[in-house]
Write a protein that binds this DNA or RNA. Structure first.
Lengths: 331, 331
DNA sequence: TCACTTGCCATACATATGCAAGGTATGTCA
DNA sequence: TGACATACCTTGCATATGTATGGCAAGTGA
């Protein structure tokens, strides 16, 4: 290395952001004030965004798709639906939903009602973490409710639970196990490990869970990278699976299609999920419409965070596929 | 009026902001998506800023002037100093301090330690309100601790207390009285009104107070518009006053210079302020250096929120005007 | 009917932002 | 000492944003 690197610390970036966002100076003005080039100011601002150092919040963000939200609640009989607007020409089904979930979580955590909540994993939750404002909830515990895949990535089990805990200023507890147990291993023996039993006990005391879902296609990270060798997308479809929640594959009625695989899945059982007071599912994309509907039917969702495109498809699906559930059409 | 006005509701503005800030579209893209002109998108975004609908937050904003903060704490013996960076060529002594106070308040309120806090009034606090993110603290009570002037404005007593309460989702209690009692009215009789006595009783139970201060010049709204007819800036200066805190004029040692006027001032007595656990003063500007120093000397400040220009002048003032207080120079 | 008001649009343009390409200072190393 | 690499700067330009101006269409009222 020749010449020492210029100061590019958080302190520098923070001051740039203060001048730019709080004081409303232009990038050129900030550069002049701080005695650096405009380029470096520009870069600092971009770095701040990337680092999640600045956060833009919109007050009452869910007023824009009120009709869709109310119709979803009515048609599917769920307690709350939150619908984020998307750009249809440049569709991104993780970002807006992530923002929406981040907003809702912030609001929900403010009440202080949650002592512990469970998280699965996936790109949607990763996106939510990166959009969350740093907070302080020292009494809160984030519990991982699903094992990980061997292909480690930032949105895998460990990264999601610790990511939430970090940004929320909370504690966390990791499920140190693979999502699917290898064929040769005895399930009961494996689960009898003290560390796992202690962890599993926490599932019964969760105040909330953050769920995601996916369909059976290459769009699903789990299907592409995480399935046991014996399980192919083809076999899944033949068994009637339309997608998974917590690694457990369901049919269009929300029933498990592969009990044997479920037995070898390390994570919170869906029966336990059903018992959690707040079941929040964050999911969007045309390919997820069926599995979202199935998960709702199964009783896995109180609150659905999605986008307007998916919401419209869900309503279409709900009207065409099934007559409204009895008692769920009341206003 | 010809033609009905176009939809310009909060819903419309919110959707624009969502696309622009959350989804990262350009204004032109948002316009195309929503079927309006770019001009209207641009105006909606500006309106959102003006309405305080969008808020930009910076994580750990007070790392940039760490040395100044520490030196202020040392030289003046205060618990905490928060220093916001400003643009010296385009100096604005309300905005940055308002942002700083908003940030600190948000952090402080998150702890849930406050049940009730007192607010005075002034442009600095008004600025803080407009920069605060909407929050929900149903258990919190904002208490006005100073009467108002007849020249009602948004930053007057009523507007500040209700403004804080509104944005914080809290309750409020107003001091329905003029800041200076008219000559002819008997003070004790006036204060014996039930509604005032109930209000004054709250002063003893405050967890915190937000204070401001001003000097004796036309820059002070109080001096320009709020003084009783018998009190002129000249008289104030002759009596040794260098500024006011809560409408009470102090000399450079922080002592009251006009006990008779203080008797006719409707607001929290400074002796009661001294007893509050957290005394937060938000003030900046070269003209406020002396009165800030005096207020600190009087023991009215735990936490000072100011800007870097004022901080430097305060340090200069502290070093030249007074030898460091005994025992306050320890690190 | 026609002048007029109102509210929006199209256009144009000044300024601000994002980004790439080549230049320059300052160190390393043969 | 000079070739070289590195880290940063300058310049220039494409795009995005902010704002002013003239125009047009729809309604109003003489």
């Amino acid at each position: 290395m020749a010449r020492e690197q210029i100061e590019d610390s958080v302190t520098f970036i923070t001051e740039v952001c203060w001048h730019y966002y709080m004081n409303g100076n232009t990038q050129a003005e900030v550069a002049r004030m701080m005695g650096v080039t405009r380029l470096r100011v520009n870069q600092a601002i971009q770095k701040a965004k990337a680092l999640g150092l600045v956060h833009v919040q919109i007050d009452s963000p869910f007023t824009t798709r009120m009709e869709l939200q109310q119709e979803l609640q009515k048609v599917y009989g769920i307690e709350k639906a939150l619908v984020a607007p998307v750009d249809r020409d440049n569709y991104d089904f993780h970002g807006p939903v992530g923002s929406g979930l981040a907003n809702y979580l912030t609001e929900r955590l403010r009440s202080g009602e949650w002592k512990t909540f469970g998280v699965s994993w996936g790109l949607t939750l990763d996106s939510a973490i990166r959009r969350l404002q740093r907070q302080s909830h020292p009494q809160l515990e984030v519990v991982s409710i699903l094992g990980g895949t061997p292909h480690g990535s930032s949105f895998n089990s460990f990264g999601i639970a610790s990511g939430f805990a970090d940004v929320l200023g909370a504690n966390y507890s990791i499920l140190t196990a693979p999502i699917y147990l290898s064929e040769g291993i005895d399930r009961d023996l494996f689960l009898s490990q003290d560390v796992l039993r202690t962890h599993f006990d926490k599932f019964d005391r969760l105040d909330a869970v953050l769920l995601t879902c996916s369909n059976v296609s290459s769009k699903s990270f789990l299907v592409s990278n995480g399935l046991p060798a014996s399980l192919t997308p083809r076999k899944l479809k033949e068994a009637g699976a339309i997608g998974d929640v917590l690694g457990r594959f369901l049919d269009s009625d929300g029933k498990s299609v592969l009990p044997y695989v479920d037995d070898h899945t390390i994570g919170m059982p869906l029966e336990a999920v059903e018992a959690v007071p707040e079941k929040i599912m964050a999911a969007a994309g045309p390919h997820k419409v069926e599995i979202i509907a199935a998960a709702i039917k199964r009783g896995l969702v109180n609150t659905l965070v999605t986008d307007d495109l998916t919401a419209e498809l869900l309503l279409e699906h709900g009207k065409s596929a099934t007559p409204p559930l009895p008692g769920s059409t009341e206003a």
